[in-house]
Write a protein that binds this DNA or RNA. Sequence first.
DNA 1: CGGGCCGTTGACTCTTGTCAATCGCGGTGG
DNA 2: CCACCGCGATTGACAAGAGTCAACGGCCCG
Lengths: 224, 224
Amino acid sequence: MQTATHLQIAPAETLRGYGSPAKRAPEAVALGSTQVFAKDEEIFAEGDRAGFFYKVVCGAVRTSKLLSDGRRQIDAFHLPGDIFGIEAGEEHRFSAEAVGGATVIAYRRCSLDDLAARDGTFSRQVVDAMLRSLERAQNHMLLLGRKTAMEKIATFLLDLSARLGDDTIELPMSRTDIADHLGLTIETVSRSLTQLERKHIIEVPAHRRSIVLCDKAALHRLDA
Amino acid sequence: MQTATHLQIAPAETLRGYGSPAKRAPEAVALGSTQVFAKDEEIFAEGDRAGFFYKVVCGAVRTSKLLSDGRRQIDAFHLPGDIFGIEAGEEHRFSAEAVGGATVIAYRRCSLDDLAARDGTFSRQVVDAMLRSLERAQNHMLLLGRKTAMEKIATFLLDLSARLGDDTIELPMSRTDIADHLGLTIETVSRSLTQLERKHIIEVPAHRRSIVLCDKAALHRLDA
DNA sequence: CGGGCCGTTGACTCTTGTCAATCGCGGTGG
DNA sequence: CCACCGCGATTGACAAGAGTCAACGGCCCG
């Protein structure tokens, strides 16, 4: 086995703008440069040249695809620690936007071959990220193709709670985002949550932006 | 850049059986061993130890996940040349079965780190396969979450025709498989095909196992 | 010739989507 | 400080796309 002593991933201090006036935090941290994006600000768009990939530091990021008539599918929400924006080809295959403000680290994309050829911690992390994306995508296909609205909501809440490590979920995203992630309409999301609330399985405080899971067992039962 | 002169992926001649009486073609081709599976025979199951991954030589393979009550989602059909069964963890995250007979090559899975650490053609091919799976999964999520039944069918037919490189599609899979892939019921698949037939957009010969795309432009119009 | 499997078709149901009104919080400006 | 405005969320009434259940048809194979 070879011994690569240094990761040779180029720092990405010389970031070109993305057409949006984001405040950039230019201190180059280790291998990438930190950037701050405002609520709903675009990080990259479908079809953009994939010069960088990213790791979420804080906040949340959504990656999505659009149909020609505007229907949207959010394939994933990325939380702190998650890596997104890795591509096989030269272009990004989906767009990424900050959900209510996010800080990310941008890594210059070296050739994927190069990356795959190294054996440092970081390359392992990237390959792992890819595989976890794939796994998540596969689970999500099962959800989208075969689960009912209520099952989708239950899965979503349990997953988010597990990822955040807390039974009280501060939702970073709007109902519209949730709907576009689960393949539902905003009305169906709202009605499902109301129903769960009435059964005392969850509690939704007045500002409606956080959800407390009171009865996880019941949620697991609802989740097929 | 290092120069790995040999791919060090272990041949997989010493295959343990998978609990099913498949005829095995034991000649070890290059890096893996060829295996033949009968119609609907299981190649591996969800939860099996992921000791191998596979490349389709001929025929077709479906990979799928099940819900506790039997609802099924086929995440992909794998055609000749496609690689499937690569996993991040120790277990297969979905099951794989031959669709009406398939020949595959099994590769012993070395540690993914090792694999990622090499720079040979084959490792590149594997990483590429992963990224293509991911891309396909993302497109499929858009389909499952946001397309109508007719749009799903149109997308499916165009995709299959493109992959097979032919406007006449010999369907390797049943209506049930198609339904479980597109998140529909067998009845809806059947009705959609009949409707396309009536509009002279496709032709479906009497045995119903092949489909001729007469009017691809119309299909593209139906596909959002 | 008969049985079974796969696919098609029809009638009906129902979950989810659509359209529209209202609520309520938060921010803004007088 | 308070009234107003606007956006996001909720709720209701209704529509419709897709699912369910059931019958039937045709093909293959014994």
